[in-house]
């Protein structure tokens, strides 16, 4: 098991403070959504947690060791990151892309071919891409492309999977496809998933745990149920979140405009 936590991390871009003394402990084996209005620093937090953005104060601790002391290649075995708009040449096959995820495990001396093939096939299977493995990236739909990237991250075989707005630019159908896939990975493969989400509804529906950021500070870090009960999201996003029941008595979340409600 790998524990990741932060102690008073502060991130600044030139002089502007983006994240202000954050203390977070990531929930292992759970799906955590990082939420917050535009400019609240949620994407920066994700990138800071994985070492893509340097922090000026405080420290990030992975198993009693500072993140800064991890070589990049060792870090890649513990956590994989899917950036917001990943980019690759278009004319490589899905399988090639996924096999890039094995980079951290490759070595000049050891023969790792067998392991590599195993994890690549496993990642393709887990993301339901085995059929498409010889297709080129440019032949894929938005959802399939995103699944390929997730498969690449999976091939890294790390405990933690960090995703920066994995559903942005996707049609609603693909959004559900990706989020259900992530939930499956969490349940079946026991992956810890930390993701920045833009859509409140998706977060409430799929995350076990929610971290809410506002102006660079954590205003909530709790289970989805408690966060909903505390009405913090209502204040931060200036909305009214209602729970409604449909004809089968299943509960759904409806998000209404607060300003209109008050009229």
């Amino acid at each position: 098991m790998v524990e990741i936590q932060t102690q008073d991390i502060t991130v600044k871009y030139s002089k502007q403070v983006i994240l202000d003394k954050l203390n977070i402990k990531l929930q292992q084996g759970k799906i955590t959504a990082i939420l917050g209005p535009n400019g609240s620093g949620k994407s920066t937090l994700l990138k800071t947690l994985v070492g893509l953005v340097p922090h000026q104060e405080g420290k990030i601790i992975i198993n009693d060791k500072k993140l800064a002391n991890f070589p990049k290649i060792e870090l890649a075995k513990i956590l994989s990151i899917l950036p917001q708009s990943p980019d690759s040449p278009n004319d490589i096959t899905v399988k090639q892309l996924v096999s890039y995820g094995r980079h951290a495990h490759s070595s000049w001396f050891k023969k790792t071919k067998k392991d590599d093939n195993f994890y690549v096939d496993w990642a393709l299977d887990a993301t339901n891409l085995t059929q498409l493995s010889d297709n080129y990236i440019y032949e894929l739909s938005g959802g399939q492309k995103q699944r390929s990237w997730i498969a690449m991250s999976l091939a890294q075989n790390s405990n933690y999977l960090f995703l920066d707005e994995p559903t942005t630019y996707l049609d609603i159908h693909y959004q559900f496809e990706i989020l259900s896939l992530l939930r499956d990975l969490n349940k079946k493969q026991n992956k810890t998933i930390i993701m920045v989400l833009h859509e409140l509804q998706n977060a409430i529906q799929y995350a076990d745990h929610i971290i809410v950021l506002d102006k660079g500070s954590v205003v909530a870090d709790d289970t989805t149920k408690n966060v909903l009960a505390s009405k913090i999201l209502d204040d931060v996003f200036k909305v009214r979140i209602k729970q409604v029941h449909d004809e089968n008595n299943q509960s759904h979340i409806v998000i209404c405009d607060q300003t209109k409600e008050s009229q």
Binding site: V50, L52, K72, I73, E74, L75, A76, K77, S80, I81, L82, P83, S85, P86, D87, S88, P89, Y100, G101, H103, A104, M152, S153, Q156
Partner: peptide
């Protein structure tokens, strides 16, 4: 080949 990935992706798979 790996350099043709965007930098953030390349870093995330542990490529220097």
């Amino acid at each position: 080949d790996l350099l043709q990935l965007s930098d953030d992706v390349a870093i995330s798979i542990g490529f220097n």
